[in-house]
Every structure is written in structure tokens, then in C-alpha cells.
Simulated assay, not measured.
Amino acid sequence: MARYNIATIEGDGIGPEVAQSTITVLKEALGSDTLHFEMLDGGADHYQKSGEVLPEDTFTACRDMHAILHGAAGMPGITYPDGTEVGNDLHLRLRFRLDLYANMRPIKLLKGVRSPLRDHDGGSIDYVIVRENTEGLYASRGGGIVMRDEVATDTLVMTRKGIERVARFSYELARQRNGALRDGKPRVTICDKANILRSYAYFRAVCNEVGVNYPDVETDYAYADAMTVHQIKRPDFYDVIVTENMFGDIISDLGAATVGGMGVSPSAELGDNHGLFQGAHGSAPDIAGQDLASPVATLLSACLMLNWLSTCHNDPQLAQAAGRIEAAVNTVLEKGEVVPTDLGGTARCSAFTKAVCEAMV
């Protein structure tokens, strides 16, 4: 039986709780021998103690192991001299140093979760946002200029290589899915501001060049401002949405709100050789250490990790385990007896973890 080494950074706030919950469920699904979790330092608290948000030995382990599982990072008041948050820098450094260029954010309404959209019940929203993860406006992080305390500039960066590979990832993903819920058509929606800025017109043009090679996948377009309306009015039309880094950050949070919030929103940051998996939520320091955190987002991120590892290593047992975990999460939420606090229930993290383990078949 194959064995996989998982670089595990619990991080800050609720990070240790949701990470430990996920490890418990993964061991229940696969036994104790398939996955080995190497616990590593990193995050805002570690920075405050050591001056390092991502120690070099942690980075080396993340680079050399099969996958990275992360809890959460960031703490209020722990910032760099320029005012930017330390915690976010943990996964940003991993993102850029490991070239994790595709940030995959599934937007899926689980059974038993109430959407704020009145016409949508469990299973009626299911699309994926693919956010270009290493370029765009966020490529300027740490490189912006503030002149004489009067003028500040950051530069939006797009390259042909960066756009081509995230577009190709998105079209390939659309081929693997079952199409949009509304009509069953595999579809890639290019989200941009091509009507205003040349950089986004270039993004669209290069995506179109890639799309020509996928005649079986429909290509659609939406301006970023209009997309925020479409995600509310017709979420079932979408299958895969590909967009620039900052726009992806914004619309993926909006999408999460339509399916229950950040606490149920998983993410996978993927490159050609590495993958980082974490819930899309923050570290929620106000509830840290109280057993109140919801582990749902991290559990679902672990499912993405198992599916990715299954594909990379041609190991179907991992995909089967991912399916069992996701089904168990749905079962527990649909029964409505053990519901996390962020979804209106009273269940503690430990209780939800136990319920998921018991629901697995």
C-alpha cells in the first residue's frame, strides 16, 4: 500500500482545531498508515516568536512532500512595518515559491445548508472558480511604491505563459466535470474587465486562443462587475469561471456567501508538481481554542487533496476515500442534528468531527 507524506501547518487561531479534525477524519477514512502528517511551524504566531513566518525547513518539507495541508494563518495586530498582514504571507510565499498558479475554489451548495438565495436548495449550486494565483494585481505584493506619503502605486502583471496555463487548467477541468447545472453544458466563463483595461483584454484574448483547442467546451464571457450580479441571479448557469488574481479573490468570497459562508468553502492551490489545501476562511481568533470552529471547509479541502493525489499517483483508493468523506459531511448536515455554529447550529468542532467519522461507510 502506498504511503503519502503530508506537510501539515496548523497555523494560527482555529487552524490547529480544524487541522486536527481533518487529520482524524482522514485517518478514519484511510487508516493510520496511508497518510503520514509531518507537523511543521509557520504562521503569524510563529513569526512573533521567531521572526519567521515560513521557516526554511518548513518550506523544504512542503517542497519535498506529496501535498500540503494548512489550517489557517493570521492574527490581528501582527503585521509587517508596511502594515500588511504577516499571516497571509505564509501561503503567499508558498504560492510563489512553489509556483501554485491555479487556485481552485469550488462553490457548491451542500445538502442541509441553507443558502441566502431563496430559490436555491442543497445541490442547486455547483460551479468552480479558477483564480490565476501568481500574477495579476497581487504580483505587486511587497513591490508597490509609496512616494513622499502622497502617491501609491501597484502594478498589475499578466504574462502569456501565466494566462495560457490557467486557461488550459480551466478547460481541462470543465472536461472532467458534468457541465453546468442549468443545461448540462461544459462551459468556461472568462471573467475580466476587457472593456476597460488592456491587460484584461489581453487576458481574454489569450484565454480565447487556448479555448480554440477545446471545441467540446463552450466559452462564455462576463465582466467582473456583472459577474457579482450573475452569481446571485443565475448561479446554476456556471460551470468553470477563470479570472485574474484579485477578481478571483473577490468573486470567490461572494460565491462562498451564496452557499453558506467561508466556513464551508474549500480551496486548492495547484501547480504542476505541488498542491496546497486549506479552507478559504481566516483564523477566527475570537473563537480559537473553544472547540467552536467549523471544520467543514478544511475537510472538503482535504477531499480535494485526496482527489488530486489520486490523479497524480494513479491511486483510486484516495479518490474513494474523498467520496466517502464528502458524502459523510453531506449526510451529517442534511440530518440537521449536528450542525456547526456558523451554519446556525450548536455543534462543537469535536462533535461534528465525531459525527462525520460515524457517518462514513
Rank of each mutant, 00 (worst) to 15 (best):
A2E: 14
Y4D: 12
I6W: 04
I6K: 00
G11I: 00
P16N: 03
V18W: 11
S21Q: 01
I23L: 07
I23E: 06
T24W: 10
K27V: 09
L30D: 03
S32F: 15
S32D: 11
H36D: 15
H36C: 15
M39P: 14
G43I: 02
A44K: 07
H46N: 13
H46L: 09
H46R: 12
S50M: 11
G51I: 10
E52A: 13
E52T: 13
E52N: 15
E52G: 14
P55I: 06
D57N: 08
F59S: 10
T60A: 14
C62K: 05
R63I: 11
I68Y: 00
G71N: 05
G71A: 05
G71P: 02
A73Y: 07
G77L: 11
I78G: 02
P81T: 07
E85P: 13
G87W: 00
N88R: 14
N88Y: 15
N88Q: 13
D89Y: 10
H91V: 15
H91K: 15
H91E: 15
L92Y: 09
R95V: 03
R95E: 01
Y101F: 06
M104S: 10
P106G: 04
P106A: 00
P106C: 02
K108H: 09
L110N: 07
K111M: 10
P116H: 08
R118H: 12
G123D: 01
Y127H: 06
V128E: 07
I129K: 01
I129N: 00
V130P: 03
V130N: 00
E132K: 02
N133C: 14
T134V: 02
T134H: 01
T134I: 08
G142C: 08
G144H: 07
V151A: 11
T153I: 13
R160Q: 15
G162C: 10
E164V: 09
V166R: 00
V166S: 05
F169S: 06
S170D: 06
Y171I: 06
A174L: 04
R175N: 14
N178C: 08
A180H: 09
A180I: 10
R182C: 12
T189S: 08
D192P: 07
D192K: 11
N195Q: 00
Y200G: 13
F203M: 10
R204C: 06
A205P: 12
E209I: 08
E209V: 08
E209C: 11
G211D: 05
E218H: 10
D220L: 13
Y221T: 04
A222H: 12
A222S: 14
A224K: 09
T228M: 05
T228D: 05
Q231E: 07
I232F: 08
K233L: 14
K233Y: 15
R234E: 12
R234F: 15
P235S: 05
V242K: 01
V242D: 08
E244D: 13
G248N: 09
D249A: 02
I251H: 01
S252L: 05
S252F: 07
A257W: 04
T258S: 10
V264D: 01
H274N: 11
G279Q: 02
A284I: 02
A288T: 09
M305S: 01
N307H: 13
S310T: 00
H313V: 07
Q320P: 12
A321C: 03
A322Q: 04
I325T: 01
I325S: 00
E326D: 04
V329R: 00
V329H: 04
V332P: 00
L333A: 01
G336C: 04
D342S: 03
D342W: 01
A347Q: 02
S350N: 03
S350R: 07
A359T: 07
M360Q: 03
V361P: 15
